[in-house]
Write a protein that binds this DNA or RNA. Structure first.
Length: 479
RNA sequence: CGGGGUGUGGCGCAGUCUGGCUAGCGCACCUGCUUUGGGAGCAGGGAGUCGGAGGUUCGAAUCCUCUCACCCCGACCA
């Protein structure tokens, strides 16, 4: 057992922090609420970026960059937007030793400045759609922060698109939600539930907000990504107008969508075990680590030579960077095992004198510790197969866990019993009012996460008020 | 912002109530030897002025005042 990680059952939040420290994923910075993302953590982010970026580009999006600082007046142009973000803005009031004429806001998100630029760039329906994404940092001065899950500054991508019609914008909004779902499930092996957010949980300035929700091992919900149909609200505020096919001036329809470094927190809390993080193979920057084991100088020569042969084969199959041989001489094998375990590397190959003799290596899975001996010949195929199995098993395990912990509640007593007992997600009817949602939240801490697509047209009676309800919604205690 | 808590080598803590001698302990770190297939052992060594400022006192980690920071629980949020 890990000696530097509190078991999940003992204290889940402490476990989470310990896993981050043990895996050297991130550290607190001297600046309140900000984190330093260490190479092991940043590697995960780079990998997420790489996969997502590809998916964005394959769907026609391009990258650009907009500035960090936004004129304060921009934020105030859209009424809901300013109301939503004002409390958490960091503002620059001085620069170059002088008080600024107009304070500059450090972007909490970039709808406003991008809207401003789009207004300039878009003149005609021929300029549409505009499909731009940017990878950047944003700042929201949160009261309470937790590494990866909620930090004052975080990294993310924000896509901003402008379209000719509502339908196109809506299609884009749902397409991107689908891409997030695909990414989370296929790459991160994190099962998610997509759906629309209720009115009162929308992004400030959105017509409709969609999100995907994941279940952590403590059965709390984590919003993993969001996609907003902004209607014409920002177009109106920033005068993004175009001359239509009918020679009439019209407002564009815009969307925005984003996901953040929070996903790393989700990854930890979905797959991690008491020994630390487990990185799904498709996401892992490093998939296989080869550990040579020897005592004598003679053994060392033979073992290292053989380990290199193994690595050569693995690299040919998995690519150079996905395989590492741990040559360090000042560390004993057991110590190496643990450090790689705590970094969540999916597969370990142990090469000792016995293995050299038997012309093979011992493959050890990170997720379930299964060990299997494999001959040098074909070891790369076997490794690739195991990696895919790990990927599938992680997803299945997380999916089973989530499904087992989604329960319907007909009565409020049932609702409360579930939260007090097993916990998890609850499907229940809701009368659609903010008042009722807030009542339920204050009484149980549970919030409406999303309205799942296949639950939105199910009439019934509100679990709290008994009033008519047109939909079942997903409730959970959330991060 | 409300409630609670904590600040002592890199990390975790003891010492504070009841002021006193060179401020201890575990882990980590460095050196050497032995070890090496699931977190090693022995020996030696380096490193702190006790969050900060002020005060009381012959004498302060310890008492008093102010202040800062961090953590946990709420409210706010990706």
């Amino acid at each position: 057992m890990a000696k530097n990680i509190t078991p999940r059952a003992t204290n889940f939040p402490q476990w989470y922090q310990d896993v981050i420290a043990a895996g050297e994923l991130a550290d607190n910075s001297p600046v309140r609420g900000c984190m330093v993302i260490r190479p092991n953590g940043y590697g995960l982010w780079e990998s997420m970026q790489e996969k997502l970026d590809r998916m964005f580009k394959e769907t026609g999006h391009v990258n650009a960059y907009f500035p960090l600082l936004i004129p304060q007046s921009f934020i105030t142009k859209e009424a809901e937007h300013v109301e939503g973000f004002a409390p958490e803005l960091a503002v620059v009031t001085q620069a170059g030793g002088k008080e600024l004429e107009e304070p500059l806001v450090i972007r909490p998100t970039s709808e406003t400045i991008i809207g401003h630029m789009y207004a300039k760039w878009i003149q005609s329906y021929r300029d549409l759609p505009v499909l731009i994404n940017q990878w950047c940092n944003v700042m929201r001065w949160e009261k309470r922060t937790r590494l990866f899950l909620r930090t004052s500054e975080f990294l993310w991508q924000e896509g901003h698109t402008a379209h000719e019609t509502y339908e196109e914008a809506q299609e884009e909004t749902l397409k991107m939600l689908g891409i997030y779902k695909e990414f989370l499930e296929d790459v991160c092996a994190i099962p998610v539930i997509p759906g629309a957010k209720p009115e009162h949980e929308k992004f400030p300035g959105a017509v409709t907000t969609y999100a995907i929700e994941a279940m952590m091992q403590d059965k709390k919900a984590l919003q993993a990504a969001t996609s907003h149909n902004l209607g014409q609200k920002f177009a109106k505020a920033f005068e993004i107008k175009y001359l239509g096919r009918d020679n009439q001036e019209e407002l564009a329809w815009t969307t925005s969508w984003g996901c953040t470094t929070r996903m790393i927190g989700g990854l930890i809390m979905t797959h991690g075990d008491d020994d630390g993080i487990i990185v799904p193979p498709r996401l892992a920057p490093l998939q296989v680590v080869v550990i040579p084991i020897y005592k004598t100088e003679e053994e060392k020569l033979a073992v290292l030579d053989f380990a290199d042969q193994v690595a050569l084969r693995l690299r040919a199959k998995l690519s150079n960077l996905k395989v590492k041989v741990d040559y360090r001489e000042d560390m004993r094998p057991a110590d190496k095992f643990f450090t790689w375990i705590q970094r969540g590397i999916p597969l370990r190959v142990e090469i000792g004198p016995k293995d050299v003799q038997n012309k093979g290596g011992m493959l050890v899975r990170r997720d379930n510790r299964q060990k299997v001996f494999c001959a040098l010949e074909g070891i790369e195929e076997k490794a690739a197969e195991i990696l895919e199995n790990i990927q599938a098993d992680l997803f299945k395990k997380a999916g089973d866990f989530m499904r087992e912990n989604i329960r319907p509640a007909e009565t409020y007593q049932e609702f409360k019993d579930i939260l007090a007992g097993p916990g998890g997600f609850i499907l229940a009817h809701w009368d659609g009012t903010k008042q009722t949602a807030e009542l339920i939240q204050s009484e149980t801490k549970a919030t409406i996460r999303v309205v799942p697509e296949d639950e939105k047209d199910k009439p019934g009676k509100c679990v709290r008020t008994g009033k008519p309800s047109s939909q079942r919604v997903l409730f959970a205690v959330a991060y």
